[in-house]
Design a protein around this nucleic acid. Structure first.
Lengths: 358, 358
DNA sequence: TAATTTCTGATTTACGTACATCAAGAATTC
DNA sequence: GAATTCTTGATGTACGTAAATCAGAAATTA
């Protein structure tokens, strides 16, 4: 059997109360006694049964998650994972309130942050819009002592405790590397489609992409489709008509529906390499239908769970191990697609079955 | 607060004992009463606190893991993850005994399985060698009612309960797709390096690779290096000398160290596309040093944790949700490498710094 | 030495569930 | 109607830890 607090007490020759004082860093233990107890803990290899401890503490962590509304598939997948976490509080004693705000609306996010502060949660996670009033609100969150994690889209490192998302510059570089190899020729003409250059993620991806490609290809000026399907489709159709020499398209935002529609309607062979971001039902179908060659993905489920872990750690005053919370950049081809039920690029699910942690 | 069993009792107007009988499917409850209780459970949205339940049951799951010895970096990484799981029994109440057997030795695996049976664990996970006596031993495990999971390397579906590993045919196809796009030309000459065609994983990968490439490239006869560094290096050096027209190499086994050494010593430009398997310190360094273009990887940590989850589910008589336990095929370029501490392709750690093959 | 203050022990209750026991009521059988 | 089964209630203990209380013992200060 695993050693318990009783075993520590016996080993150290002290009472249970003293062991408890040492374990929970309560005052009233002489330094010498404390060291005896700690030695006993090390000697018998005691590890606290967190399940029992949490049960006894009956501690709950009220967290607030702030997500954008809108029909962005990735964001809806993110919301689904948050709701999954809400639906299974059993495992981790987390009580999440979910706040949905209008998309691309800095003022709304700022208001939501201020509202969250007044509820005094144990932590806040937010899909940030990189705007001055959001930064101000984030600072107010920190000033009130509430841990703050940015999700997917970051603010500056100075106004949040942690960022649960991918390194978007590295993602752009990865896209660039793939693109360079997929087009397989020097001085090819490459087009880039973004949502908006006002969003930090998109800027970072573009920078990384250019850095990986600059010396071997010609990258056309960025097209900004505002992640709007109709507008994006027009942009791409126009692009394909005007530049028959285009061999690669990099879609670094969420405008994939318009891109796919334009490629589908295109009457000549599509550019040799098309790379997009985020595995959604649309991009999955496009991969399977050979309209897209590769999809870079961030696992929304991982991001949500990571955000929760970090918030809990911060709430407990334990420093989170940043290296363990890094979110990977997944690359999907049609050949290594995960099963539909298994990831974000899936068909909508009926309810919320519990999922395996990773 | 979350509803508890007491709330169910109050809602249904029955005693705690009756609620307990319903919850734990104990006999002695009239159908009508049972339905009242179940209705109450649904009405107040009760979810059993598994932490408390496991605490009360003080149930432990003794599992046996059987892994091959040897200096294969991937296997040592796998072992490290098993030891990690052993070192933190707090979370999941599993008690793992780890058995290390000689590599590529079916008889040894079979003996280990039989020895494990006599210990009556709640489940067994094994890195299988696809040999008749292993299959026989696996059937004996199943006959004795102990759940059996194959890890990384499978047996037939008929002689284990679950396979915790990647779809190696899909992995081969993925490698083929990447290869086709990386070499970027028709009728290119591609070489394949394997460990041994006697191993199921390697055969599957080769099949998938050929299926993805057959109509566009010329794939040379497979080289078998037995995952031995020196032998592999000679094979590759010889290959490069005899076939100056080779534009791609696919290393589908664990012979990466010899491959990398040969590429390093090669005095002419290396083939345009080199794709290998498993992110280890060696392949990571080769990726960073531009000796390899892409590495397909299976996350050993995920596999170990998945195996444990499945074994627990089987031990509890709960059918594991296969779709949730699928292991992804990761693709790594130098641009999306995870941090060294974060994954298997890490720098050697003080505890067990394996060096050698792969 | 007396009066404090600081430390430690002993004990109890609690968290939410599992599980066992005993008694008593209800329904069934003969 | 008696004997038997089936069903339910009441109660207590246990899991491993947290947290509080109160009573002494030890160390410190006056």
């Amino acid at each position: 059997m695993r050693p318990t607090v009783h075993d520590i007490a016996a080993e150290a020759g002290v009472s249970l109360a003293t062991v408890d004082r040492v374990l929970n860093r309560r005052p009233g233990v002489k330094a010498a006694t404390r060291m005896r107890v700690e030695a006993a803990i090390a000697a018998i290899g005691f590890v606290r049964d967190m399940a029992a401890a949490n049960l006894a503490k009956s501690r709950v962590y009220p967290f607030t998650f702030i997500l954008p509304a809108g029909d962005n598939s990735f964001m809806r997948g993110l919301e689904r994972h948050v709701r999954d976490a809400m639906a299974r509080p059993s495992a981790d004693r987390v009580a999440i309130s979910l706040v949905i705000v209008p998309p691309f609306d800095g003022a709304a996010v700022a208001r939501a942050l201020d509202a969250a502060i007044s509820n005094e949660p144990a932590g806040i996670a937010v899909v940030a819009v990189d705007a001055p009033d959001v930064v101000d609100a984030a600072r107010r969150v920190q000033a009130s002592g509430i841990p703050l994690v940015t999700l997917v889209s970051d603010l500056g490192p100075s106004c949040r405790d942690h960022f649960a998302g991918i390194d978007n510059h590295a993602a752009g570089r990865t896209a660039g590397s793939l693109m360079r190899r997929f087009v397989g020729q020097e001085s090819a003409t490459i087009a880039v489609l973004a949502g908006s250059m006002l969003v930090r993620d998109h800027r970072d991806r573009l920078d990384g992409f250019r850095a990986a490609l600059s010396d071997s290809c010609r990258v056309l000026p960025v097209l900004e489709g505002q992640d709007d399907p109709a507008a994006t489709e027009r942009l791409i159709a126009d692009l394909l008509a005007r530049h028959p020499d285009i061999v690669g398209i990099y879609s670094l935002g969420a405008g994939n529906r318009g891109l796919i529609a334009a490629l589908q309607r295109h009457d000549r062979p599509r550019p040799r390499a098309v790379i997009a971001h985020e595995l959604t039902p649309h991009t999955r179908a496009a991969l399977e239908g050979d309209l897209i060659d590769a999809v870079l993905n961030q696992d929304a489920g991982h991001e949500v769970r990571s955000a929760i872990r970090v918030l809990k750690a911060k709430a407990d005053g334990i420093p989170a191990v940043e290296a363990q919370e890094r979110i990977r950049i997944d690359i999907f081809l049609k050949d290594n697609l995960p099963f539909a039920d298994d990831a974000d690029g899936m068909s909508p699910r009926p309810s919320s079955a519990p999922r395996g942690a990773n």
